[in-house]
Design a protein around this nucleic acid. Structure first.
Length: 576
RNA sequence: GCCGGCGUAGCUCAGCUGGUAGAGCAAGUGAUUUGUAAUCACUAGGUCGGGGGUUCGAAUCCCUUCGCCGGCUCCA
């Protein structure tokens, strides 16, 4: 049996999951039990039940759980032989448990009883149900038995539990707070982007303010690529089907692509940019002297994603990648990966991301190339990460069909991780496209190809950014950096003078000339999360200054316009 | 794609068991000229996501479709 580290809270929650299953069994006799482990912030349990569970059912189940807790039934551990366990759970009509037991290698296994409820479980558990103090059932969702979509769909109840009611309340409040950071909600409130049912799911429309943010990201990433020796290219959005056959996408990626016909020829909308870059590489003989060749493109791609997986900006059907393909010699591979990692870490830091996950994904079931080639590429990726001394986890079998990859994942408001940066080694396409370069030895060699994106997708990165800052973007990223607020009509002239100056300094501003109270104008600017407000009234006109209000700190008093401009320009410069 | 839930004015939401829609904010108009998170009044605005059905009558019930939400699966 595998050794597992059971932290106290995990045991606690695991016991809560048992109590929940117990409650469901009492309320719905005949329910078939799946599995019910503790998870990061709570626990779940899967049930096979004819009746569809509703929110009201959750309340009833909670009620029943409280009853079981009150009964304070001891958790009793029992060791029984495998065949006896099979008999027991067969008699209890628990086929999923029987299936699990049959796969356990040990001849002895453990069950836990509490009252008249029995569950297959290796434990450990609390001493009795009465030890569970605070819990809440959160949601019910579908989940395939054993995570396989060919299997039955069970109903999963998610819940959480804490040792005190206080901690539980705090957690629930945290969830509420997280919902406020949701980029989908903020995107609407801040007038950044929209989706349209009439246009199609997963297709983003950037509004003027969203477009400002988008352009800032584009400018930044273009500049950085230029600095790092990338050459810019532009390639078409549609390419003939035949080309995708050469690359293998036709076999391995077909279900994610959009095909259509022109002049009786099959075409596909590009789901990736690599082929265009390969064609450019192929336009002339290449020398080792040119390597590494780094082609960069802000490439817009379209992929068919199953309807249930779309998620605001974080998972869409049309998106733009800051995509580049590096063609280099095998000897240059590791250095190139080191360079890309450096680029990625610099970028994430600049945008304020401190928390991320680094994953190394290895060979999947469907793959192109040979195991040896995969091995070699994986080694290069590992060594590059070791060079940077970063901690990473291995995701076995999660690689793309053409090669292993490193992914950097960013956390969203409620703690889900989304892949941003990706670095993928590809030995497959150089082979399929017969790519070569002339070496110093006057012989032809095959280059290695690296697919990589730093933001990943501009859309996803924008979504992550909004959630990271809860909409309160730093000054350099704010679509509107300053709102000028004249107090009365007689201050409009002065406000316009201030505005003119801001405009000259290329600061993004608005002047609020509405016939509203100053309180209202301030409130609206705060809600729009504008970093700076400049209030101008009689006093400011007279002294030729502005009254500064900072988004987070409130009224900062008077300051000369020159000094304010100096301050804000410095912040913009420093990407603050 | 699968399981469950949801879809009412630009936004946030109300509308009990079927009797043909309502609030606040936003918008427009007018008044007000304001000192740091909501000035007041008036006006306009919806074939209740689309289509079909049940019914004398549907926002309310049923079917279907699109979209959204939470999971699951998938994920370059």
């Amino acid at each position: 049996m595998a050794v597992q580290k059971d932290d106290e809270l995990e045991i606690y929650r695991h016991s809560a999951a048992h109590v929940m299953a117990h409650a469901v069994s009492e309320l719905f006799p005949g329910v078939k039990l799946g599995i019910g482990p503790p998870i990061e912030d709570g626990f779940y349990y899967d049930f096979d039940l004819d009746h569809s569970l509703t929110t009201e059912d959750l309340e009833k189940i909670e009620e029943k759980m409280r009853e079981i807790v009150k009964r304070d039934e001891p958790f009793i551990r029992e060791e029984i032989p495998k065949d006896e366990a099979i008999k027991l759970f067969t008699s209890l009509n628990q086929p999923f448990k029987v299936e699990l037991i049959k796969e356990i290698e040990d001849d002895k296994l453990t069950i836990y009883r509490e009252g008249n409820f029995v569950d297959l479980c290796r434990g450990p558990h609390l001493s009795s149900t009465g030890k569970i103090k605070a819990f809440k059932l959160l949601s019910v969702a579908g989940a395939y038995w054993r995570g396989d979509e060919k299997n039955a769909m069970l109903q999963r109840i998610y819940g959480t539990s804490f040792k005190t009611q206080n901690e539980l309340d705090e957690y629930l409040k945290k969830l509420e707070e997280a919902a406020k950071r949701d980029h989908r909600k903020l995107g609407k409130e801040l007038d950044l982007f929209s989706f349209h049912e009439v246009a199609g799911a997963g297709l983003v429309f950037y509004h003027p303010k969203g477009a400002v943010l988008r352009f800032i990201l584009e400018d930044f990433i273009k500049m950085e690529h230029a600095k790092r020796g990338y050459q810019f290219v532009i390639t078409p959005h549609i390419l003939k089907g035949d080309l995708w056959k050469i690359s293998g996408h036709y076999d391995f990626y077909r279900e994610n692509m959009y095909f259509f016909e022109i002049d009786e020829k099959e075409y596909a909308v590009k789901p990736m940019n690599c082929l265009g870059h390969i064609l450019i590489y192929q336009t002339k003989p290449r020398s080792y002297r040119e390597l590494p060749i780094r082609f960069f493109e802000l490439g817009t791609v379209y992929r068919y994603e199953r309807s249930g997986v779309l998620h605001g900006l974080l998972r869409v059907r049309g998106f733009t990648q800051d995509d580049a393909h590096i063609f280099c010699s095998i000897e240059q591979l590791e250095d190139e990966i080191i360079g890309v990692l450096d680029f990625a870490f610099y970028t994430l830091k600049t945008f304020g991301f401190k928390e991320y996950e680094i994953k190394l994904s290895t060979r999947p079931e469907k793959y192109a190339g040979t195991p040896e080639i995969w091995e070699e590429a994986t080694k290069a990726l590992k060594q590059a990460m070791e060079h940077h001394g970063v901690a990473y986890e291995v995701d076995p079998g999660e690689g793309v069909f053409y090669g292993p990859k490193i992914d950097i994942k960013l956390k969203d408001a409620i703690g889900r991780f989304w892949q941003a940066t990706t670095i993928q080694v590809d030995f497959n396409n150089p082979e399929r496209f017969d790519m070569v370069y002339w070496g110093q030895d006057n012989l032809q060699h095959q280059p290695v190809m690296i697919h990589r994106a730093i933001f990943g997708s501009l859309e996803r990165f924008t979504g992550a950014l909004i959630e990271h800052y809860a909409g309160a973007l730093p000054v350099w990223l704010s679509p509107v950096q300053v709102v000028v607020i004249p107090i009365a009509n007689r201050h409009f002239d002065y406000a316009q003078k201030v505005a003119q100056r801001l405009s000259q300094e290329k600061i993004r501003f608005e002047v609020d000339e509405r016939s509203e109270s100053i309180g209202k104008k301030v409130r609206d600017a705060q809600i729009q999360k504008v970093p700076y407000m400049l209030v101008v009234g009689d006093k400011e006109v007279e002294k030729r200054v502005v009254a500064l209000r900072e988004r987070k700190e409130g009224d900062k008093g008077q300051i000369s316009l020159d000094n304010f401009i100096k301050k804000i320009k410095k912040e913009i410069e420093e990407k603050f």
